[in-house]
Design a protein around this nucleic acid. Structure first.
Lengths: 357, 357
DNA sequence: AGCGGGCGCTAACCCGATTTAGCAACGGAG
DNA sequence: CTCCGTTGCTAAATCGGGTTAGCGCCCGCT
C-alpha cells in the first residue's frame, strides 16, 4: 500500500555509514562526538533526499518520551468557551512539537480512571486535568505518577500539583470598577449571588471569588452593595426570575450579573418592564459568552480567558516536566490568568454622578 | 519517581514462564497454541496481581498500530457545535479502545501538512479530516497513504476517500414540511439564499442542498416560494438587514432562515416592526445552535447532528481500516447523517389554513 | 621500531512487546 | 527398542531508533 517509511537504516545505507553515526549526526550530537564534516554532510543530504522522519513511536519506546501530552476534562471539549481552552493548549503544545490526546470523563470517576490509564499506556509526557467550571476536584491518585497540571480547578485535598485558574477575584474588582468608573455609587445590585459571602452556590469557586472582588473594589470606593438575589443555577431562567423578583421592590441603577446567561435573563426582565439598558439600568457581567456580543445592547462583561488558560496550562506543564528531570522539590503553585474586561454598550454613566472629575 | 511500569517480562518471571508464553496467553492465543490450563492460570494470575498493562508504544512499534486516530480540522474544536463532533468521535473511538489526537489547521495548508506529518510520525491508524462548515476541500495528498475519512466535507478532486456529511437536502425538505404541516401555503419567504439555485453563497454546500430540499418539498405540495433575500454572510446582522429589506415590501406568513444566526437577525427585524412570532410570522431555521433554545419564542430548527457526525466518521474510518487489511477495492462513498427537526414555539398553524384535514 | 594518544567511526545492547521457528519430553505404533 | 508425531513451551529475531563501550588507524614522540 503505502511505500514503507524511510528508516534510519535507509539513511545510513544511503550515506554509507553506520546507523549509529547517522543517529548521532541527526540528533545534533555529531559535533561533540567528532564526526567529520564530510560524513555529516553525506548523512544530512541522504536524510533530506529520502525525506527521512524519525518514527516517534520508536523514539518513545527507547527514550520514554512520546512527545505527547494528555488533556483530560470533565466535559470541556463540548462547549464553545472551553473549546478555546483546548485550542490554546493545542497551539502551545504544537510550538514545542507536542501533540495532544483529548479525553472526556463526563464526571465519571471510572471513565476517568480508564482514560488516565489509556494515556499512561501511551506514555504521555504529562497530563492536564481540566474542569469545565472553575471548582475543586478530587485528584485521582493515578496522575500523581507523572507531571500534571490542574486547569480551571483546585485540588480538594492538598497535592503537589500546580493549578491554572482565571483570576476571578480581580475579575470581580474589575466588574465593580467598570461601574465605579461610570460614576455609579448607588443602586448597584447583584444577580446570581451575594450580598454576603454565605449567599453563594456551593461548589462554585467563581461565585465566591467574584463576590470577594466586587465587595473589595466597592468597599475601597466607599460604596455599598444595595442588594442581591441569588440563583439556584446560573441559567437564563433563574436570572429572569431573580431580576423580576428584585424589580418588584426596587429600581436598580446597575446590575452586576454573575455570568452572561444570568444577564440574558436580566435583560429580559428589564425589557418586560420597559426599562432600557443602559439608559435606565447599566449591566455588567462575567464570562464573555458569545451571546454577549450578539444581544442588543451588547453586553459589557469580564471575559474568561479560555485560550490563555489553555496555553498557560501547557506552559506550566512543561516547566513541570523539566522540573521532574531536575528533581527539584517545589509545592503545587497556583497560577492566575487575568480576565480582561470587554467594554461594550450595556454600561452608561450614572445620571446622578458628580461631573466634577 | 514513579515505580517502574510492570512489563511482560515481570509477569513472565512471576509466573515462571517465558515472555513468549506470557504474551501468547495474554493475547488470547494460548488456546490455539496448546498452552496448558495450569500455565494459563499462572500467567493470568500474575498479570492480575502485578496489574500488568501492555505498553502500547511498544505494541505500536512491533505491530504498526498505535490504537490511535488523528482528528484534524480547520477550526472545528473551537465552536460549541463542532465540539459535539469531537465528542461523538471521542466516544466512538473509546469504545474500541482508541484515543484521539486532535489538531487544528486554521485553514493553513502548511500547518495542515505539518500536523498530518506529526500524526503520521506517531503512526496513527487512521485520519479524520473535518471541516467546520460543510464544504468541499482540497485533499492533501499526504493522507492518501493510510485510511482516512472526510467529515463535513467533500473532496474537491475525486478521491477514493469516503465522506460523512449531514443530510442537508432532507433537512431542507423537513424544514419546508414543518411549515406545510402547519398549513402554510402562501407567503413563505427564504432568508439567506434563494429563491433560485444561483442565489447562493459560493463555497457553501449547505446553502445549495438546503435550498434544493426546500424547493423539492414545497414543489411536491404545489407550493411556491413567495420570495427570498440572500445574505453575504450568514451572521445575525445580515439576517437583520435582509429581513428588514423584505419587510419593506411584503408581509410574510413564514420565514425559512438558512441558519439560526440569520434567524436571530430576522427575530429582531420582526420585533422592531411589532410583528409577533409565531402569531404573525412563523420562523423555521437550521443548525440548532444553542441560542435557538434560549430566545423567546424558542426557535424551531433542523439540527446539525454534530455528535452523530463524529460517531459516524469514526465508524466509517474503522470499516476503512478493516478494508485496508482486507485489501478490498471500493470507491469513496458518501454517508449522509439525518438532521432531526427540533420542534419548538416559533411555528404556528397558518391562519389561512384549511381546517379540513 | 615501539608506544601513547587522539580522532573517527561502529558493534552491540536496550526499550517492551509480537511472532517465527524449533526444541525437549512423552506416548504410541511398528 | 526405535521411530514418529504430539504436546507444551521457549530462544531468538524483529520493529526503529538511542546510547555505551570500544575498535582501528594515523600521528608524533622517543
Amino acid at each position: 500500500m503505502s511505500p514503507r517509511r524511510v528508516t534510519l537504516a535507509d539513511v545510513a545505507k544511503a550515506a554509507g555509514v553506520s546507523r549509529t553515526t547517522a543517529s548521532l549526526v541527526l540528533s545534533g550530537r555529531g559535533r561533540e562526538l567528532r564526526i567529520s564534516q564530510d560524513v555529516e554532510q553525506r548523512v544530512l543530504r541522504a536524510a533530506d533526499e529520502l525525506q527521512y522522519r524519525p518514527n516517534i513511536v520508536s523514539v518513545g519506546l527507547r527514550t520514554g518520551s512520546s512527545r505527547t501530552i494528555g488533556f483530560v476534562s470533565d466535559t470541556v471539549a463540548t462547549t464553545r468557551l472551553a473549546g478555546d481552552m483546548i485550542k490554546g493548549a493545542l497551539e502551545a503544545a504544537r510550538e514545542r512539537g507536542f501533540m495532544l490526546f483529548i479525553g472526556e470523563t463526563e464526571g465519571d470517576a471510572e471513565l476517568e480512571r480508564l482514560l488516565l490509564q489509556a494515556m499512561h499506556d501511551r506514555q504521555v509526557d504529562g497530563l492536564i486535568l481540566a474542569s469545565m467550571f472553575t471548582r475543586t476536584i478530587k485528584v485521582p491518585k493515578a496522575i500523581t505518577a507523572g507531571p500534571a497540571v490542574l486547569l480551571n480547578a483546585l485540588p480538594k485535598q492538598p497535592t503537589p500539583l500546580p493549578a491554572v485558574l482565571p483570576d476571578e477575584v480581580e475579575a470581580g474588582r474589575r466588574a465593580a470598577r467598570v461601574l465605579l468608573d461610570a460614576g455609579h455609587r448607588d443602586g448597584i445590585y447583584l444577580i446570581g449571588a451575594g450580598p454576603g459571602l454565605r449567599n453563594v452556590p456551593s461548589e462554585s469557586l467563581a461565585a465566591v471569588e467574584r463576590l470577594v472582588g466586587i465587595r473589595e473594589a466597592l468597599g475601597e470606593a466607599g460604596v455599598k452593595v444595595a442588594g442581591a438575589r441569588t440563583c439556584p443555577d446560573w441559567q437564563p431562567e433563574y436570572g429572569l426570575a431573580a431580576t423580576q423578583d428584585l424589580l418588584r421592590t426596587v429600581q436598580p441603577r446597575a446590575l452586576i450579573c454573575f455570568n452572561d446567561r444570568i444577564a440574558m435573563g436580566a435583560y429580559q426582565a428589564l425589557d418586560d418592564l420597559g426599562l432600557k439598558v443602559p439608559a435606565d439600568v447599566s449591566v455588567v457581567s462575567f464570562d464573555d459568552h458569545p451571546i454577549a456580543s450578539w444581544v442588543r445592547p451588547r453586553l459589557t462583561t469580564v471575559a474568561l480567558p479560555h485560550y490563555e488558560l489553555g496555553r498557560k496550562a501547557v506552559d506550566v506543564l512543561f516547566t513541570e516536566i523539566e522540573r521532574d528531570r531536575a528533581d527539584t522539590e517545589e509545592v503545587g503553585q497556583v497560577h492566575r490568568v487575568p480576565m480582561p474586561v470587554r467594554s461594550r454598550e450595556s454600561v452608561a454613566p450614572s445620571p446622578t454622578a458628580d461631573s466634577l472629575d
